[in-house]
Design a binder for these strands. Structure first.
Lengths: 248, 248
DNA sequence: CGCTTGATTGATTTGAGTCAATCCCAGTGG
DNA sequence: CCACTGGGATTGACTCAAATCAATCAAGCG
């Protein structure tokens, strides 16, 4: 079911650079000077595109470095012995994944493409070496790690304390804001993942996802057609998550 | 209800050093040379002891650095507007917390003592500067961050995919292995946290925690007396979590 | 045009929550 | 030293949100 994939050397590829990448200010190079960005750029691997459902890595694989999604989408997940997947995160263009390998230089979870996907690899050894002379890069990496950790914490709050409909509303708002961040519509978008994956992320059953989408539609909050989502009433959606947001 | 606390200057304290600390090889200095450890040691703050139920930091507080528990215990948590706490982690002696401040130089969650507690602060600015010349420290920090992230991921799997009794069994095994790591009994220990906190960590109701402890006792798996836990049948406890462990 | 796979819908069950009433210490003060 | 008290812990009765089981339904594909 999972397809195979290989990296091809940088020299064989069209020239793509961080500098020219429209996602660079969402991605790791954010905040670096032009000179720094070029230096970082020299070390980045850019594998070719991959199909839907390709496994990028799995537990036990050697940790190469950080992965940055260029197009498409990726899910990272753990599985129980019985097969159920707990999705840890969905990673959209401009977002970074693969940090689970930092502990022991081995990946600890699975990473699989949701769609036709391309990504960059930022080799860890190189990043580490560059950190010696680039305080801004150190800062940027810490920011990134902190961000991932805080995302996981919000996810814990969701799984531990929210009802099924709060979870789905939170999820829709998260996807929406991430589309918006990339300059797309916040109210009309295609979900890159299946109902099964949404259920796995939210810790609920697929059937519940279906029923809740239906119930949201009946309340004129959204219009759903397979993967196409149109948010009709952002206000109501925000209300639904009002009591379950964290305080500060 | 929460009590106040202040730091006192290093000079006013008894000399405590990483070098002489029995926890140093569980803690951040692990793997550093003696010379490196001394250099790190010079920058560590060691506030005095705190009572139970002291707030160490809360969302919005300036991020100072990493915190290492020396004695006692700490919980970190997020709260919903309605007041429910999602406990993100319990931190026992030798363990580090406070990484939630890395994203924006502001803490994002609450940290509160569970008990009479002392801890060290490893100021972030200093750590960052030392990283320029100490590759081993960089490595150690990345290892630590990766470890925290992987703990969060296991916690996500627990909240998303495990039943209440699997969650409690996983919890007991985790506490047990952490006591063992510090050289204490793996089968007989005092829980440092309340039932309420256990429930908040596991995403279940307090009453459910009580009922499950009772049911575990009736199956002769454990003996529970208030906070005193004696694991009578480690095998059965492991069996209970067998299907819900992650694959690799 | 069947076939496969994912999504939806309905009927039923159940694990865990909620509500409410004790219970049991630990700490306080007479 | 012992009665009192308040907060955490336990227990029981009842409820309900979401899971499970079981049919369809719909879409994409060879």
């Amino acid at each position: 079911m999972q397809k195979n994939m290989n990296h091809i050397p940088l020299s064989k590829q069209l020239k793509i650079s961080c500098e020219s990448c429209s996602l660079s200010d969402l991605c790791l190079p954010r905040g670096l000077s032009l000179k720094e960005m070029e230096e970082l750029d020299d070390h980045i691997e850019r594998p070719r595109n991959f199909d839907q459902n390709c496994q990028i890595y799995q537990p036990g694989d050697k940790f190469i470095g950080f992965y940055a999604v260029r197009s498409g989408g990726v899910k990272t997940y753990l599985t129980k012995k019985t097969g159920e997947q707990q999705i840890l995160g969905f990673h959209l263009p401009g977002e970074v994944f693969g940090l689970d390998g930092l502990e022991n230089s081995k990946q600890r979870c699975y990473a699989t493409t949701l769609d036709n996907t391309s990504y960059c690899i930022l080799p860890y050894e190189k990043l580490d070496a560059l950190c010696e002379t680039m305080p801004e890069l150190r800062h940027q990496i810490c920011h990134l790690l902190g961000h991932e950790m805080n995302c996981d914490h919000s996810h814990l709050l969701l799984l531990g304390q929210q009802t099924a409909h709060e979870r789905l509303a939170t999820f829709l708002l998260s996807i929406s804001s991430r589309f918006k961040r990339r300059g797309f519509s916040a109210t009309s978008f295609m979900l890159p993942m299946s109902r099964h994956d949404i259920a796995g992320y939210l810790g609920i059953a697929v059937e519940t996802v279906s029923r809740l989408f239906k119930s949201f539609q009946e309340k004129d909050i959204v219009k759903i057609n397979r993967k196409q989502v149109d948010i009709l009433d952002m206000g109501k959606l925000n209300e639904m998550v009002a009591n379950c947001e964290e305080t500060d």
